[in-house]
Design a protein around this nucleic acid. Structure first.
Lengths: 341, 341
DNA sequence: TTGAAAGCGCTAACAA
DNA sequence: TTGTTAGCGCTTTCAA
């Protein structure tokens, strides 16, 4: 049998409330009994049950985390940092991979409610904001990271996607590229990136033909396919802005296969600055998100809201940073992204 | 207020035990009341509390997962699959990154015990097997994946490391390489890989000088540093067997920096078959682990043990597979891994 | 087919 | 400073 507060009390010759007090460091107990109780707890290898304690209304010390897919290195990094910070703050995290699938979102949310999580961190786009509203109604605080969910009032931590995209686009323009395609994911964060791209292009008097805007899912494979699609068009392109590193990697693989030299014949720029951007050849120019900082902030905001539910919501916008590496180069006059034969 | 079983009972005009029965599909209740109760639950947006249910002795439906580091794509893949399978089986998972650090292992274990997890999956080397024994004493079943922990009797799912290493080494030998260095991590799984390497080499009459065996931690950086160290030795090497992909990537980066051509001047072989092996140039020859299959099996074994605690322990050994790509080539007579100047 | 009630391990108010 | 006790939301036995 697992030791309970009763076993400890009995063994130590005190009452359970005394034991409870030394566990929680509440009330006043003499140093002598305190020591005795601590000793007995260690000896019995007693670990107070969060389950029982939670039933009395105390927190479960659990944070739910919804990510699209932990195999995406960007989310792996994010999850890692969120976990570290959560542990530092005394919480542990239950992670769920939604694949941006509405069914899974629903299922996991219900699961998490049943588990009585103290708070929820959402790192994935959310199709059904109503489900989230239900959580809010159940007094479960929510913080959103690297994403945005319309119509609900929650704490939010994002990188300035608009600015990041501006940085990327502007850099490409400074390299004299004019025919630039963009591959985006259908997620809120990517909308800002697309908007910024369009505006900067327009400001520079460049019209982006609709076929140069491809919307797809975040994966190397999709990046590869999108690139193939772009390369097959009549209207050639000299640069591609992929809205995340996974897509960018796919683009580079497609280019390689078609013997399109990056960066000589095609400049590629990514977003996220994951490991992949430094292991690919040539190394990827990309926009870095301060994942660590973002993670610390979401956790802290969430924990703050658990303590002070009434507090106003915060919307943190962190600075992206353009990391110039080797996948981008100035436009060569003759360059076109066509196959070599 | 969150709805409770009482609110539902009252609203539906029945007793709480009736509600409980319809939730758990136990006992006999008329279709009519059943429908009524279900209706009320939906209307009240009621989600039964796992916390309360667990207090009565039922499972918490929580599995603890200890991984070294989720930023390592191998563990990210593994974690993803473990989670998917756990969800399928009705459990959710609490993940903890140990960094193979004894302090963290201890801290997280205590955390998980307090949370009353139903079972634990260990994917990390474990310095302190006694802590795990304590869990076993508390009747918390443990399954180990991609690792092995001496002196404790638990279910185990691993790839056949010995065979994987044999495959890799043998392949290198078939390419006529004789001067092969190996970079390993100080973890149980890697010991088998090192042993196999040594034996195969010996069988072929090749003596591996001690300086050609480097033990370090699993990271790109460490792989890079180890490679630098190897390249600086008097005794040149024509191939490097890195015991995981991260290390192999580091090796390739170091080689590139020193203008050592892979695979012409140096063959590199990895282990794990992560994304990185297909995004690096040249693509990495590596040994694939069937992560998905492994994940499904650990979860299933763990769940089985929860149900039938007395059952004998199983030790699953899955087949590795050599994936030949572009980082390995036959030995050129003149080749030595030296810098080009 | 339904309900009453004890108990799971703990917290917190209150009493001693 | 310590102990008694009611309750947290549920399950389960037993009775009706």
């Amino acid at each position: 049998m697992k030791p309970t507060i009763y076993s400890v009390a009995e063994e130590a010759g005190v009452s359970i409330s005394t034991v409870s007090k030394v566990i929680n460091q509440t009330g006043h107990i003499s140093e002598r009994t305190r020591q005795k109780v601590i000793e007995v707890m260690a000896q019995l290898n007693y670990h107070p049950s969060v389950v029982a304690s939670a039933l009395t209304g105390k927190p479960t010390k659990t944070i739910g985390l919804l990510v699209p897919d932990i195999s995406n290195p960007f989310f792996a990094d994010l999850a890692r940092s969120i976990e570290d910070r959560s542990h530092e703050r005394g919480f542990h995290v239950v992670m769920c991979n939604t694949d941006n699938d509405a069914e899974k979102e629903k299922k996991y949310l219900s699961l998490l409610i049943r588990q009585r999580i103290d708070g929820l961190i959402v790192a994935s786009a959310f199709r059904n904001a109503n489900l989230l509203k239900n959580m809010l109604k159940q007094d479960i605080p929510i913080s959103v990271i690297a994403s945005e969910i319309p119509h609900i009032s929650v704490n939010t931590v994002t990188v300035d996607d608009y600015k990041g995209s501006y940085l990327a686009t502007d850099y490409l323009l400074s390299l004299h590229h004019k025919k630039i395609a963009i591959i985006t994911e259908n997620a809120k964060s990517n909308h800002a990136r697309l908007d910024a791209f369009r505006e900067v292009m327009q400001e520079n008097g460049i019209i982006v033909p609709p076929q140069h805007v491809i919307t797809t899912e975040a994966s190397i494979q999709k990046g590869y396919e999108s690139a193939k699609q772009i390369f097959s068009m009549k209207e050639k392109v000299t640069a591609i802005f992929a809205c995340n590193d996974l897509l960018a990697i796919g683009v580079m693989q497609a280019a390689k296969e078609l013997k399109i030299d990056v960066p000589q014949d095609l400049s590629v720029i990514g977003f996220d600055n994951t490991v992949l951007s430094t292991t690919i050849t040539p190394m990827l120019t990309t926009v870095a998100q301060p994942t660590k900082e973002m993670a610390v902030n979401v956790v802290d905001l969430l924990v703050r809201e658990m303590k002070y539910p009434a507090m106003h919501k915060e919307h943190l916008l962190l600075e992206p940073k353009l990391i110039v590496r080797k996948s981008t180069a100035p436009l060569r006059r003759e360059a076109t992204a066509s196959t070599n034969n």
